[in-house]
């Protein structure tokens, strides 16, 4: 459960350059942008032992839209993302203070079961990590453990719809029982997205989902993120500012554990209020 792996930043930068092509190929859907806050974070601080990794972060994240977290390595954006589905619980030294409300309920309340929470808040990781099982079983795993399918036919339907939503079904429909690890990197990442949406979550967290992918696979994932926005609240951590600009409606800039600035993506990238934001997006540091 490493936080940010500096090795993975090199391909990210390159993708940023090439991925501009995708913007011209794909027009964002004109789905209405919601203004309701799905997630409300107040004064969230995270400590790793003595070290404070995140300082009093407060943000409202809107439903049915894409929010991008940007910032230099070690700025706390991944840490904050992992607060939203309590993945930080597994880091023994990590301590979280403050509150994160999803639909008005604080997920750090002792009465909340983090396991059930993670079924509502799905996650897609930096490196595609399909289970070493068949494509079918990869997607079916979540519905199985949560008892979402009453029959084999139900399960088949969930698997197929999830793969369709992830834009993978056409490519794999003839080999659903073959190993998920045999797919290409981009297909594996879409399989992971299918796996995440199979449990019908409300929020999908994506931790640099394209940093291990080539530009074409990246473009496909970005397209997919834009489609998924109509049904889910999506939060994406990215190292690529171009990607943030392409896929997100709102952007939050983190620096040294502080949420520096949050707002409409167009505003952040054109008229940032803070000089630190401006310095970062113009490439003066980071």
């Amino acid at each position: 459960m490493s936080l940010e792996d500096p090795v993975n930043e090199v391909p990210t930068m390159e993708q940023g350059r090439f991925a501009n092509i995708a913007v011209t190929l794909h027009e964002p859907t004109a789905a209405p942008v919601s203004t309701d806050a799905k997630i409300k974070a107040h004064d969230v601080s995270v400590f790793y032992g003595e070290k404070q990794a995140l300082i009093d972060v407060g943000i409202d994240i809107r439903d049915k839209s894409v929010t991008a977290f940007i910032g230099p390595s070690g700025c706390g954006k991944s840490t904050f993302l992992r607060c939203l589905n309590r993945m930080n619980d597994f880091i023994p030294a990590a301590r979280v203070t403050g509150s994160v409300e999803i639909d008005g309920v604080n997920i750090y309340d002792p009465s909340i079961d983090p396991v059930q929470l993670r079924a509502r808040v799905g996650m897609v990781f930096q490196k595609p990590n399909p289970f070493p099982k068949s494509i079918y079983d990869n997607v079916a795993y979540g519905p199985r453990i949560h008892g979402l399918a009453k029959s084999k036919a139900d399960l088949d339907e969930i698997v197929i719809t999830s793969l369709e939503k992830a834009g993978l079904y056409k490519e794999v429909k003839d080999r659903l029982l073959e190993a998920g690890t045999g797919l290409s990197g981009g297909q594996q990442q879409r399989l992971c997205i299918a796996r995440a949406i199979a449990v019908n979550p409300e929020v999908i967290l994506m931790d640099e989902p394209c940093s291990a992918l080539d530009p074409i696979a990246t473009a496909r994932i970005e397209e997919l993120i834009d489609e998924l926005r109509q049904n889910f609240c999506i939060v994406i951590v990215t190292h690529s500012m171009q990607q943030a600009a392409r896929v997100s409606q709102r952007t939050a800039f983190f620096h040294l554990g502080i949420l520096v600035e949050e707002g409409e993506t167009s505003q952040i990238f054109t008229v940032p209020r803070e000089t630190r934001t401006q310095d970062y997006i113009t490439g003066r540091f980071g």
Binding site: M1, Q116, G122, M123, F125, Y141, C192
Partner: peptide
């Protein structure tokens, strides 16, 4: 066993014990 497999299972809402026994 790569930690990414554990994260994947936990990420879809498996409990720790489910993660251990299933993956």
């Amino acid at each position: 066993v790569p930690p990414s497999i554990r994260e994947a299972a936990l990420g879809v809402g498996a409990s720790r014990v489910q993660t251990i026994f299933h993956h």
